[in-house]
């Protein structure tokens, strides 16, 4: 049997719904037949992405319940088998799958919840992008901004209640939520007002402080802008959202 045919046969046998019945290429021994040997791979090939998704969608799993979550993940992986080298990426399409599947009509927010959990994963792996860092080395500006690339604005209609309630209590005028990671591997989520959000968004995308100020001046009242820079910028920098280097 040629290598490609053999690999196709083995792949079909160890897929989630695969069967090793009638498999031609694998040796059976007196103590263990080919089917039982292949099951070791089949089980492991399912458990690896399952374990990742169980970690990544912990709150979603609580809402769905253990059995239903297992059933949905199995169905999801059947139609979306891992296709990249990075196993943590396997749950990327799970929120969309839940939305399309209309999995739990009584929990209309389940898509948003799963998406929030996915963004948490993505923000963790966004934290330190050496490609972006090396690009910024050649900047000649006086005050270069180094944004934390993990910062993601969360714009779901249904933010996780716990975080949102806490943040809105802190500041009732908060309208936008951000999620980001810091070096201690913690994931943070906070909400800001519309003006604060604009300032923060511009700072995160600007290459230098001078460029950010030039863009913000026509958009924000000068008093509010000054107050935001004076009061909030140090806090934001302290929270690891970005650095400003002279």
């Amino acid at each position: 049997m040629k290598l490609k045919s053999l690999q196709n046969e083995i792949f079909r046998a160890i897929e989630i719904d695969g069967s090793s019945k009638g498999i031609q290429s694998v040796v059976s021994t007196p103590t263990l037949n080919a089917q039982d040997r292949l099951k070791t791979y089949q089980r492991s090939a399912y458990l690896k992405p399952y374990t990742c998704m169980e970690d990544d969608f912990q709150v979603t799993k609580i809402f769905l319940g253990d059995d239903f979550f297992d059933e949905l993940v199995k169905e999801f992986l059947l139609h979306n088998p891992p296709d990249t080298h990075f196993i943590n990426e396997c749950g990327r399409k799970f929120p969309d799958f839940l939305k399309e599947r209309m999995a739990v009509p009584e929990y209309p927010f389940i898509f948003d919840l799963a998406m929030m959990e996915w963004l948490r994963v993505e923000s963790f792996f966004n934290f330190y992008d050496f490609r972006k860092s090396s690009e910024q080395k050649n900047e000649e500006s006086e005050h270069v901004i180094h944004p934390n690339p993990s910062v993601i604005q969360f714009s779901s209609d249904w933010p996780i209640h716990e975080i949102w309630d806490k943040e809105v209590t802190r500041d009732p005028s908060a309208t936008m939520a951000f999620i980001w990671t810091t070096e201690d591997r913690k994931v943070h989520c906070e909400a800001w007002t519309k003006e604060e959000t604009t300032v923060l968004q511009v700072l995160l995308k600007s290459r230098s402080l001078e460029v950010a100020v030039a863009e913000l001046t026509p958009l924000i009242d000068s008093e509010i802008l000054r107050a935001t820079f004076t009061n909030l910028s140090p806090q934001w920098m302290g929270a690891g959202l970005f650095e400003i280097k002279n």
């Binding site: 080298h85 934290f127 591997r185």
Partner: peptide, 18 residues
């Protein structure tokens, strides 16, 4: 190695810095 390569198109975890 793959743990430090991150999600394609996104970037790396804080682990790379360490």
């Amino acid at each position: 190695t793959e743990n430090y390569m991150g999600i394609t198109g996104s970037g790396q975890s804080p682990l790379l810095k360490k």
